[in-house]
Design a protein around this nucleic acid. Sequence first.
DNA 1: GTCTATACACCGATAGAC
DNA 2: GTCTATCGGTGTATAGAC
Lengths: 197, 197
Amino acid sequence: MRRLPLAVRRAELIDAAVRVIARDGLAKASTRAIVAEADMPLGAFHYVFRTREDMMRALVTEVVDKERSAALAAFEAQGSDTDLRSMLRAGLGSYLALLKTRPDLELAMLEVALYGVRHDATMVADQWQSYHRAAAEGLEKAAELCGVTWRQPIEHVAQSLISAFDGITLTWIAIRDAEAAERHMDFLADSFARLAS
Amino acid sequence: MRRLPLAVRRAELIDAAVRVIARDGLAKASTRAIVAEADMPLGAFHYVFRTREDMMRALVTEVVDKERSAALAAFEAQGSDTDLRSMLRAGLGSYLALLKTRPDLELAMLEVALYGVRHDATMVADQWQSYHRAAAEGLEKAAELCGVTWRQPIEHVAQSLISAFDGITLTWIAIRDAEAAERHMDFLADSFARLAS
DNA sequence: GTCTATACACCGATAGAC
DNA sequence: GTCTATCGGTGTATAGAC
């Protein structure tokens, strides 16, 4: 009836799936709930994806990656005329802003990531590796702008930064204490800035 | 037939539920799977718990708390004749040892915590607050043993420490990179030690 | 008090009408 | 190509036998 290209249907279904997971949780994201959200008949699902697991796999690689990249993009360098500590702090702050506006989405991403660990641990590990690369690029650019250099291999700093992001995310989802998060980010900005000279 | 006290059955069911979740994931932890693991008939489940959600609620408060307390206990002060940095590093290291030996269990705890956020966010927030208190006690004892004092309110340091733990946990579950984890803990021990004088 | 049998909703997936 | 109707299986929960 609607005659949409397969790629469009696919994107709409993944989009609908993310909305359902964010609103109701991964456990409630049945194929029926997803097609209802996308306003499609049930048959359309298995016309696009062979199985539900196929869709979840696509969702993990495409959406979780996009989401985290957006977070790291927010982290990336803005104005140049500041010191490294302030720049790091601003990046962390804009990530917290993202957490505040869409906590449901971050919770969804976390549920999906844990699903990925259960079903294809390698896929999730690769995903995190790509965060490391993105973080390393951001850290390099920040150091350039501030005219400093990292005293440790930038990959190692990037790994610690991702772990710090992971902590901020999980802690925020658990207790949503804005003041504690701000203080913790002050601490992190100080600590990371000390790794450069 | 077996005539066990209700409390014993209850404990056995929760224990079986944790094993199932650790082994197969929260999504597979149906009432049937749990009673099979506990070697009980299905009826026993609803004799002890009114609904599955009732059991999950009990599991969140009792088990997740116990698990995290064990982690923080591992963190707590051991030998006295060292500096604060080494003591913090040792504590973090013993938590990583716990992650290494039972990654399935930590993944299970994380799944359960996210379930809790979806179904009773207050309960999870209270849980994290109790971690904060436990962490604060550990930090106080560590500072005493080293003859130093924290330059910031110990509650704030504890909040950051828990967030660091959260990050270590999530990162480990995602990529299980032991070397990166060790390096990150070196960085954390340095950074936290700087908060005392 | 304990367990079996079963009710009933919903799941993923597909066959077959159009 | 698209959608409806339905299958087989599993979920939670309970009624009723013992």
